[in-house]
Amino acid sequence: MTDPLLSVRDLHVTFPHRQGQRFPWSPPGRLHAVNGVSFDLMPGKVLGVVGESGCGKSTLVRAIAGLGPRDNGIVALNGEQIDYRRRAEMQRLRRVMQMIFQDPMASLNPRMTIREIVAEPLIYFRPEFSAKERRQKVIEMLDRVGIPQRNMNRFPHEFSGGQCQRIGIARALIARPQILLCDEPVSALDVSIQAQVINLLKDLQAEMGLTLIFVAHDLGVVRHISDDILVMYMGGMMEMAPARDLVHDPRHPYTQALLSAVPVPDPRVRTQPQLLTGDLPSPMNLPKGCLFQSRCPKRFADCARIRPPLVARDGRQVACLLEGATEPA
């Protein structure tokens, strides 16, 4: 058994929030964005993170990348806890861990040429390269992601969204990181372009032996790229399972509802989406029991009292009180 490359233990993220404050001088409330996420990521694997907007999936990867705050919890790389406060350690971390973002245009500096953008990580992380070597590396990388060399001196606005995302990928991968965090990398792209970028990411992942955390709201996309899928709701983990098992046999009521709502591109399939009723709990004031209790079609009395722990069974983890117990008919 190999050791995990990245381990996350009981990660919590909260933000100060002024809503519900009685007086301007009273202490601000806390918005609970991520509530106790734990997972191990094996080298070379792809972990997909899904959930609806506001479930904390982006906050989670930003916290892991050190781009956002963390309240509690441990993030360890190769078994060593990352100290996000130390600058030297952060530099080392960024060599190992890179990120691509949702809005491909906004994540590229509009005043830099593509060549400068892609070369920048090399200048920073691989200062031993000469300018000539750097240029060669940039050409190779751009070629690999499908941007022709002749376009190298152009600016981001001259490229389409799909091309900008390719450039973002080239920039992230040029210094050969081990982990790539992808925050909704294809949500802004059209279906035909989206498929190109997913295939590119998959190929690069296999070629370079990358470990990926892939965040998206589109289950179809996540299904296609991931080995394991983590389902989040209100910042908590609902279920984590191998991708295939999760889509064919979802255990958690929320996963079941989420999967049933995915529209199937086949008019012969009559989907029966489970329409969730009930309101989302406030992230300022989380319920005591299960995070999903207010909308869960299978809730019972205990759900309001006990926050279900993640139960590992058959290679999957489910946070539901029904798991393990026999389901009430």
């Binding site: 279906v191 035909s192 989206q194 498929a195 997913i198 295939n199 998959k202 589109d218 289950l219 179809g220 996309v221 299904r223 296609h224 295939r244 889509v247 064919h248 999967l259 995915v262 199937v264 591109p265």
Partner: peptide, 12 residues
């Protein structure tokens, strides 16, 4: 090109 959740083939 549409990724479907039920299909298991790798390449889109």
């Amino acid at each position: 090109a549409v990724p479907r959740i039920t299909e298991d083939d790798a390449e889109l």
